[in-house]
Every structure is written in structure tokens, then in C-alpha cells.
Design a protein around this nucleic acid. Structure first.
Lengths: 325, 325
DNA sequence: GTGAAAGCGCTAACAG
DNA sequence: CTGTTAGCGCTTTCAC
């Protein structure tokens, strides 16, 4: 904290009151042209930057939004956060972003941090625990994006989600069209996502006349440390000729294992697209999330809620696009 | 901003003064055990969260650091920012991150924003303009990372940089060892990085007995819109059998163009490594930046400077690792 | 058009 | 051990 030049210094240098400096710098109309001009010059020369904390405390809002995500290193969240920042910026809001690494404890800390920073609203990818968001948030507006907490009755917040069932079903169906006869799944450890994606996977199989088989339904650990082993299990031991993978972090581990298995080409599909999948020798079918709309919609809803606290919460589902290669 | 329960409410509910609440909650030793206990309970029940703005304004520091990078979507900066956040967190600091998209105007805005937020220090990847950082920053501690501004005399700030010359030279040399006879370069638009990496490229050629040739030295636009065309120019028209690419964003465009050219395998090298390069049919030699150390060192220096404003600025160079595939 | 004064929520002397 | 008071930097009535 610079602790340096304040409005008082500017006022003194300009020979006016602090009030006038404030008015001049906030473009209030009630200031004479040359007074304003003079004050602005002096402020510049002095290198004056208004103290945003003082202003916010006075104005009772920060024009800052909080964003809580699991991990910025996950390409999906990298993109999502960028979209959110751009949308927020366009609306005149700053953004503070925090990672939770899927940890409930870190999520709780993140929430406290943002609340103490007095953010005007929060966008959150729920870590999925039994967290009582209403108790913690008080009446700070919030919207859930990508995942929502386990529902117990009415959820007081908006949620902007992708249609996981439809997206997954489409990918698995495409794999079947490509000729896959036995498609395994490596599912996510994230319960909200996992449940929905599992449903889509099973629906696609059933619709095509295949019987879901628990022996080829695996779940990745949060750190994906068992994925390579699962890959071998499904493709070698269980003789799957197709594999659906529930997110991009799992996919990376699968791709890392694949060459070592030295198998004939398999039918590979997954949730989340990455641009570099285009470069792989192995074609991948993916459900690409509508990240831009996800972020924009979340911001839109949040701002609407900030504007009108009585706005009723909604659930918004956006469709994923199937990318065939 | 919740505008809700304040220290005053807690004080009233507990039947004590605001000062006592403050002391109880900040773990000051001068409070009776049960008083503290009672206050903590009441605070919890009321859902009290201290107003960080008020506290910061009073304490004259925010325990918040600002980070300015070009683009979080660039994997190098994604990783760097995560490392910085973790290191800052460990030291008890929050982080506010801003993207500039290599724009001088946005960099100026970012600086203002952070200064108004009263951050205790700033880590910045300079956009490279003639910006007078000293004038803007006043005595807010700052350190440059990855790039520093054009030097005019003494630079008042620490800088933590990678050894671009060494890194580039090593990659190009490796390409030559692999048998490349004519290695072109597609350089970055970022002047600081570009200058150093060009030097490394030419040094490697010269050392190996090749003559640098301006006809095969190209520069990417900031948005990389000309990279695919340059790729064709160098590999087809100029018949290069090797290519050095100055950063990971350029590399992606090159990879996108390569298949269409339908050439025999070329010797490909670049600055910045990405994990997924492992999966490509085309082996790539890279200079991998020591991102973790870069971030940690930057934070260390910044905190040191915050601690002791008289600390003399240094330039720290870290070596890149050559990854051969 | 401008100044004086109050107050946002908090902590740090200073008393007691 | 606890209460009173002042003040951080700013904006905003309310006067003039």
C-alpha cells in the first residue's frame, strides 16, 4: 500500500477543499470548468490515485465480483475465467479469482476471502459438499456455474449448467455409429458431473441396444492417479474397443497411456474439447462446452441479481456441441 | 456488498464494546477466555464477516498482490499465475490478476486498477512500451517477470527472467545435431523476448558454421494471423528442413498448418514446452521454462522488497531446460 | 460553485 | 481486561 498522496494533498495543492477535489474527479457537474481542469492537472502531477478501499467503504459497493473455480490449470476453467473476466470488465466490474482444488476447506476459505473483500457478487463452481451457501453468503448475490451443490429442496441461487446428459449421449452414440461394440467409461470424481454424464452414457448404450456393464464403468480419482491403470483395465483386460472419458484432465492421462498399450485403434470420446486434439494421430470425438455462453450467461444473471435482489432463481441449461474427428 | 452485519452489531449483541470484539476476533491476547468465546459464537451465529476494506484502510495494507500478465489463455501464463498464487497464498497474500492482451492501454488501466485497490505489491510482465513505471507506481514495490521494459539507464525494479539466449541456442543446436541443414525462425512480436531469442538462434547457427539468412527469419504478428503463411513460406518456398518457433502460441499455428503442407518430416523446435507435445506424431524439441522457480522467485523478491523498501534491484536469470523428443 | 462536517467499519492508542 | 476516542480516505448532505 503506497500510503502516499491522498485527496487531502491534492486539495491542499489546489487550494480547494477535499469535497471539491472529489467532485472534480468524479465528474460531478457542479464544478467550474477551470477548477476541474486545474485539479485534474494537479492530481496527475502529484500521481494521485484515489483510494478504492475508502471509496468502496463509503459507497457500499466494490464493483468487484468474486469467482471460485477448482483449478485455473484445467483448460475448461482457464477459458471460462477469461470469458467471465471479459464480460465483467465490459460491465464495469473487476474480478477476483480463487482456486479450490476441489477442496471443501479451500472453498470455505475462498468464500470468506471474497466476503471480506466485500465483493458485490460471486460466481462459483461448487466443490459439491454439504456447504450451507445461504448461511455463508447472507444476501450476497451468487450464481453457480458448471456445477451446483447437492439439491436439498429449493436452491436459492441461479445456476448455469451444460446439458451433460445430452452431450455425453451424443458422443457415445457417435462412437457407436463409428462401429464401437463395447464402450467403457472412465468417469469423473466430481459427483454432480459424474452422475449426469453416467446417465448420458448409459442412455446412449441402451438406446443402441447395448446392455450397460458395471465391469467397464470406472471412476477416476480426483488427482487422476488411477487413470492409466483403468485405461489398461478397460482396454486390455475388459477388451473394450471404445472408451468414453468424462473430462479433459482424464483424457490427458488416457492419451499418455495409450501408446504403451500398443493396441489397434480404439473409438475414443470424451467430454470437453481441446484445440490440440486436432493434432493427434488418434481421432477423438468430444462434447464441446459452450464456454463463452456459459460465462456470459453467468455474468448476466449475476448482474441482474445484483440489480434486483428479488429476482427469482433459475436453472439454465446450455447444449454441448459434438465434435467428430 | 452485503452491507449487513458489522462489528457494531456483534458488539451490541454481546454487550461489549466494538474494541473488545475486534480484539477477540483478531486473537489479541488481552481478552478473557469466555469473553472471546462468547463473542466468537455470537459472531458466527450472526454470520459476521469482518469488512476487509475497513480493516485495510485502517491498517494501511491489504495483504493483496497484483499480477499483470498478457493473457491467462497462454499456457505459460496460466501456469505462472497459478504458481504465483500458490506462493502468495503460502505467504498470506491474496492475488488480483489482470490480463492486458499485450495492449499498452490495458496495461495502464491494469496498473491504475491495482493501485486503486491498494495492493501491497505488483508482479508484472511488461507490455514493453515506453511506460514510465516509476512515475505510475510511486513507491509501490514491483517486480518484472518474464519480460522487462526497454531499459533506459538504471531500472528501479527487480526482474526475474529466463535465459532466452541460452535456451534458444540449445534448442537450435539440438536441431542441428539432429541433422537440420537449413533452419528458419518464426519469431515473436514481443520485442524483449524476440530480440533475445533471435540472438540465441543466430549464435547457434554461427557456432555450427551456418550463415544466418534474413530470408528465413520471419516475425509473427501479435495475433499470429500470419504464422500459417510464414510456415509455408519458410518450409516450401525457402525449403527449410528445420524450424525454430519463438513461443507456444506460434507453435500451435505451425502445427495447424503442417499437415496441409504434406512435407517430409522437418526438424521442429520452439520456446515453451507443453505437456501435450508428447502426444504428437511429430517430435518437437523445446526450451522448457522453469515456471515454478520463475514465479516463486518473483514472489520472494517482491515480498523482500515489501519488507525492506531499500532493497537494491537485481536481475535474476534462470536457465531453460532443453526437451528433446 | 464550494466548504464544513459527518460517517462508512475497523483498529490502536490511551485510560481506567 | 475492557471502554472511549480518534482517524484511515473518501463521498455526500447541508449550508453558504
Amino acid at each position: 500500500m503506497t500510503g502516499k498522496v491522498t485527496i487531502k494533498d491534492v486539495a491542499k495543492a489546489a487550494g480547494v477543499s477535499e469535497a471539491t477535489v472529489s467532485r472534480a474527479l468524479t465528474h460531478s457537474p457542479r464544478v467550474k470548468r477551470d477548477t476541474r481542469q486545474k485539479i485534474q492537472n494537479i492530481a496527475n502531477n502529484l500521481g494521485y490515485h484515489p483510494n478504492g478501499l475508502a471509496r468502496s467503504i463509503r459507497l457500499q459497493h466494490t464493483h468487484t465480483l468474486g469467482v471460485i473455480i477448482p483449478d485455473i490449470l484445467n483448460a475448461f476453467f482457464t477459458k471460462l475465467s477469461r470469458v467471465i473476466e471479459d464480460a465483467a470488465d465490459k460491465a464495469g466490474y473487476d474480478v477476483v479469482l480463487v482456486n479450490t482444488d476441489e477442496s471443501l476447506a479451500k472453498e470455505a476459505n475462498a468464500l470468506s476471502l471474497l466476503l471480506e473483500k466485500q465483493v458485490d457478487g460471486i460466481i462459483i463452481t461448487s466443490a459439491g459438499g454439504p456447504t450451507k451457501y445461504t448461511d455463508i453468503l447472507g444476501n450476497t448475490p451468487a450464481v453457480f456455474v458448471d456445477r451446483m451443490p447437492p439439491v436439498t429442496g429449493q436452491l436459492a441461487y441461479d445456476r448455469v449448467l451444460v446439458d451433460n446428459i445430452q452431450g455425453t449421449r451424443a458422443v457415445v452414440t457417435e462412437l457407436i455409429h463409428q462401429g464401437a461394440q463395447r464402450i467403457g467409461i472412465i468417469n469423473s470424481a466430481v459427483s454432480f458431473t459424474a452422475t449426469e454424464r453416467m446417465t448420458g452414457y448409459r442412455e446412449a448404450l441402451t438406446q443402441a441396444g447395448f446392455e450397460p456393464d458395471a465391469a467397464i464403468e470406472a471412476t477416476a480419482r480426483t488427482d487422476n492417479s488411477n487413470v492409466q491403470q483403468m485405461t489398461r483395465q478397460l482396454l486390455v483386460n475388459q477388451k473394450c474397443d471404445g472408451l468414453f472419458v468424462a473430462d479433459n484432465t482424464i483424457m490427458e492421462e488416457v492419451l499418455r497411456k495409450l501408446p504403451a498399450l500398443d493396441l489397434p485403434p480404439i473409438h475414443l470420446g470424451g467430454f470437453d474439447d481441446q484445440d490440440w486434439f486436432d493434432f493427434l494421430p488418434q481421432p477423438i470425438v468430444t462434447a464441446r462446452q459452450p464456454i463463452a455462453q456459459l460465462g456470459q450467461t453467468a455474468i448476466d444473471r449475476l448482474l441482474a441479481k445484483i440489480d434486483d435482489p428479488d429476482l427469482l432463481p433459475e436453472e439454465i441449461r446450455l447444449a454441448a456441441t459434438t465434435i467428430s474427428r
